[in-house]
Design a protein around this nucleic acid. Sequence first.
DNA 1: ACACCCTCCTGGAGGC
DNA 2: TGCCTCCAGGAGGGTG
Length: 276
Amino acid sequence: MPELPEVETIVRKLRLRVVGQRVTDVQVRWQRSIAVPSVERFIGELVGRELQAIDRRGKFVVISLLPTKYLLIHLRMTGRLIYADADSQPHPLETDPHTQVVLQFASHTKLYFRDTRKFGRLFLVDDPSEIVADLGIEPLGADFTSESLGVLLGRRHRPLKVALLDQSMLAGLGNIYVDESLWLARLSPCRISDTLVMGEVDRLYQAIGQVLACALEHHGTTLRDYRDPDNQAGANASCLEVYGRTGEPCSRCGTPIERMIVAQRSTHYCPHCQAS
DNA sequence: ACACCCTCCTGGAGGC
DNA sequence: TGCCTCCAGGAGGGTG
């Protein structure tokens, strides 16, 4: 599932392809993929606009358009953005039953939004803050420091797992990287966020940075569904220490990795290293 | 503030 | 082989 490293990988790759392209046609095959505005207005207001820039905010892809407008895309679980060069052969995604939205460009290239589970959403707005205003700090940004993390964790009294998944605190972590960060920091997912001492906060801060940097370097984690705009899988799955490794020995201490449910989320951890 | 549940979706996995 | 049930999960919503 696309979390920060996957979305960042997608954005970096797409940037090379779509910036400067002008939209000439939009197909919406699954109406509910369009969150706002109505499908009719979405199509009408997108056609003719030029893609000026593409960035990431949390797990959102943010495309700046000219004349000024913003296309935001959240891929949720299984969403993909696949770029297709102009080709005489029809692209396989053209007839793929999971292709939900297609942008056609003046250059005859296309951008496909494919989403098996149909949870992903596209938003066309005048101002991105209409959608992303409640997002917290960027773990890759300058605002993310050991100090700021400490302040955020101290504000509320809840398990670390819940806190780190909360997008209004930190924007971009999902189930995989939260579990991985907590393992690296040697902190229990159940540990209450406002009980951490400074050294523990710093360990968590370092761990989050390291886990995200590693995942980015490997172009994201592909367990099943994730693909980048060139349909390439990410290579980070082999770097995972706990996620999806229930029963396998912890690489630090050999204790079998366990799985439990925290906040209705499957949570993977080492019961020995992450005892507290 | 927090805990818990539900909804959205589909394909893959496991049971029989 | 085939059918059934369960499960995965991000985010928003609702209730207690």
